[in-house]
Design a protein around this nucleic acid. Structure first.
Length: 493
RNA sequence: GGCGUCAUGGCCGAGUGGCUAGGCGGAGCUCUGCAAAAGCUUUUACAGCGGUUCGAAUCCGCUUGACGCCUCCA
C-alpha cells in the first residue's frame, strides 16, 4: 500500500473541469456506479466502463482509502422508450426465451459476474438490485409528490420537470436548458399521460399482462428507470456522496434525472464529482446491443469473431483498454489489440526479470523520481496511458541494469520492484497469465521440453540438420522456439 | 434540427503555449552455427484556412470531417 499523501485531480462532468479531489470524510470515499441492465450478455463496451471504475476503485484502495463502492444491478424491467409504449426489455427477453423474467435476470447476472471475474475485477462493496429496493423507491415517489414536484395520472407518477426547473436547474449536467428542449421536442404521442414531454416516470402503472409488478399507493406498477439509483445510492452512501460514475451515454437523461430526483427530495445536490467513462467503438461506431455492432468478451477469449484473427487473454484485453484514457473514445480493432498484446508481453517479461537483477552500492538511475512520475500520472485524472508509458520506462531500466549498462542500489531495486508490481497488478489489475495451467498444456510442455533437449544435444554435436528440422517442424505446428542466453523457451501461437 | 466531443507520425494512443510520451511496425546494432526470439539505439506528427503571441500542434475564429446525446443503452 502506498502511504504517501497524493493529491488527486478528477475531471468533474458537472463543472467540465479537473478539480482537486477532496472526499467528504477524510479517510472514506463513497462511490456509486450505474451497473448493467441484465437482459442480455455484457459486451466489451460495457466491460470498458466498469473496468475504468474498477481501476479507480483499485487506485483509491491502493492509496489507503476506505472505499465503499456501490454498483447496482438493474433487474427491474424498464420500457424500451420513455413514451408510454414499448415493451419491458426483460419481459421481452423472457417471452422470447420462454422463461420467467427473474430467470432472465438470474442468467445474465451470473454471466456478468463470470465475465468480470475473468477480467480480474474486484467485487464492489455492495451490489444492490433494483427489485430489492422497491419500498425505498416508493418512499421517494411519495416524498416528491408531497413536495409538489410530481403528479399522478392513471396509476402512474411523473416528475414535473418544468415545475422543478422553476426553482432548480434541470440540465446542468448535460449542458441543456429546458427552453431548448421544449423547442426541439417532437410531438408527444396522443396517448401519453405526461403533462410535458420532458417529464419522466417515477412510477409506471403495470398493464394486466405485465409480470414484474409491485403494489403501491397508486396501484400495481413498477418503478421508473432513474429512481433505483437515487434510492440505492442514498441508502448506502447517504444523501450526498463523493463520486458517481457511469457510461457517457447515461449522462442524459439518466443522470440528469437522478440529480433532479435527489434535489427534489432532499433539497440539495447528491453528488460531488460526476465521472463519465467514454465509449468503446467498433468500426468507429459505438458498440450497442441493439444494432449488433459489438464484440462479446467470450469472443475475445476464443477468437471466434469475424473481427478477430486470434484469441486474446482477458489480461491483454484489459491492457488494451487501459492504454487509452477512460474519457477518450477507444476504437477496437484486431491490429490495435495485436499491438497491445506484444506490449503486454514485454511488460510482463520485464517484471519477470526484476528478481534476477544484481545490486550495486549506488544507483545510476533516479528511481524515486520515476516512481513519483508514475503516481503523478494516476493523480492526474487516472491517466493510465501515461502510467503505462512510465512502466515501460521501468522495463527499459530493468533491461539496462540486467545488461550492466546501468546500476541500482538495493533500496532502489526494492522501490522499483514494489512500484512496478503494485501498479501493474494491484492498480491496473493485470495478471501474468504466461504460466499455463491446464494439464493438457503441461503435457505438451513436457513434450516440447524434450524436443528442446534433443535439439540442444544436436546443436552441441554440430548436427544442425537435425536441430533445424526440430525447430522448423515445431514452427509448422505453431510452436515457436526462442533461444536465449540461459537456454531455450517456447511459445504456442 | 438542437447540444456536445474529437481531429496527432505507417498503425494504436498520451500530452502540452517554447524542452523525449509510450506501445506496435520500420531501420541499425548486440547476441547467435544460421535464423527467430530478446535487448539496446533510432525514425517521423499534430485536419485545412485565418487570427492572438517573441513563439502555437497547444489559445481564439471559420471551414471540412467523424463521433456521441437529444428514444433503451456502459
Amino acid at each position: 500500500m502506498q502511504s504517501t499523501k497524493q493529491t488527486i485531480r478528477i475531471y468533474n462532468s458537472l463543472s467540465g473541469k479537473k478539480e482537486e479531489f477532496k472526499p467528504l470524510n477524510e479517510e472514506h470515499i463513497g462511490m456509486y456506479v450505474c451497473g448493467p441492465t441484465v437482459y442480455s450478455n455484457v459486451h466489451l463496451g460495457n466491460v470498458r466502463t466498469f473496468m475504468s471504475f474498477d481501476m479507480i476503485f483499485r487506485y483509491f484502495k491502493h492509496l489507503g482509502y476506505k472505499v465503499r463502492y456501490v454498483r447496482n444491478i438493474t433487474d427491474a424491467g424498464h420500457l424500451e422508450n420513455d413514451a408510454d409504449e414499448g415493451e419491458d426489455r426483460i419481459a421481452k427477453k423472457a417471452r422470447l426465451e420462454q422463461i420467467e423474467p427473474m430467470e432472465v435476470v438470474q442468467k445474465y447476472t451470473v454471466d456478468f459476474h463470470n465475465i468480470l471475474n475473468k477480467f480480474n475485477f474486484l467485487p464492489p462493496s455492495i451490489e444492490p438490485t433494483a427489485t430489492g429496493h422497491i419500498i425505498e423507491q416508493i418512499e421517494i415517489v411519495k416524498d416528491i409528490l408531497d413536495k409538489g414536484l410530481a403528479y399522478e395520472i392513471n396509476g402512474s407518477v411523473y416528475f414535473d420537470v418544468v415545475k422543478f426547473n422553476e426553482t432548480n436547474n434541470y440540465g446542468k449536467l448535460s449542458g441543456r436548458n429546458i427552453e431548448d428542449m421544449i423547442a426541439n421536442t417532437r410531438e408527444l404521442n396522443a396517448q401519453s399521460d405526461k403533462k410535458n414531454p420532458q417529464d419522466f416516470a417515477l412510477w409506471k402503472k403495470a398493464e394486466p399482462k405485465h409480470i414484474m409488478r409491485w403494489p403501491s399507493p397508486w396501484g400495481d406498477g413498477f418503478p421508473g428507470w432513474h429512481l433505483e439509483c437515487t434510492a440505492m445510492s442514498t441508502k448506502y452512501l447517504g444523501e450526498q456522496f463523493d463520486i458517481h460514475g457511469g457510461g457517457m451515454d447515461l449522462k442524459f437523461p439518466h443522470h440528469e434525472c437522478e440529480i433532479a430526483q435527489a434535489e427534489a427530495s432532499y433539497g440539495h445536490t447528491p453528488v460531488r464529482y460526476w465521472m463519465h467513462a467514454n465509449m468503446l467503438t467498433l468500426n468507429g461506431k459505438k458498440m450497442a446491443k441493439s444494432t449488433g455492432n459489438n464484440i462479446l468478451p467470450t469472443e475475445i477469449f476464443t477468437g471466434d469473431n469475424e473481427h478477430l484473427s486470434k484469441a486474446f487473454s482477458p489480461s491483454v484485453a484489459r491492457f488494451f483498454m487501459l492504454q487509452a484514457h477512460y474519457r477518450s473514445i477507444l476504437d477496437f480493432s484486431n491490429d490495435a489489440i495485436l499491438a497491445a498484446e506484444k506490449g503486454y508481453n514485454r511488460l510482463m517479461d520485464g517484471i519477470g526479470l526484476i528478481s534476477f537483477l544484481k545490486t550495486s552500492p549506488t544507483s545510476s538511475l533516479d528511481i524515486t523520481k520515476w516512481k513519483q512520475q508514475c503516481y503523478d500520472a494516476m493523480n492526474d485524472d487516472f491517466n493510465t496511458p501515461i502510467l503505462i508509458a512510465h512502466l515501460f520506462e521501468g522495463v527499459k531500466y530493468i533491461n539496462l541494469i540486467k545488461d550492466g549498462k546501468e546500476s541500482i542500489s538495493e533500496a532502489d531495486l526494492e522501490m522499483l520492484s514494489t512500484t512496478m508490481t503494485e501498479l501493474t497488478f494491484d492498480v491496473l489489475g493485470l495478471e501474468n497469465k504466461s504460466a499455463s495451467s491446464s494439464s493438457g498444456e503441461d503435457k505438451l510442455g513436457g513434450v516440447v521440453d524434450l524436443l528442446i533437449q534433443l535439439r540442444a544435444e544436436a546443436r552441441l554435436n554440430k548436427d544442425f540438420a537435425t536441430s533445424d528440422k526440430i525447430r522448423n517442424e515445431l514452427t509448422e505446428l505453431g510452436i515457436e522456439l526462442k533461444d536465449g542466453k540461459d537456454g531455450t523457451t517456447f511459445s504456442i501461437n
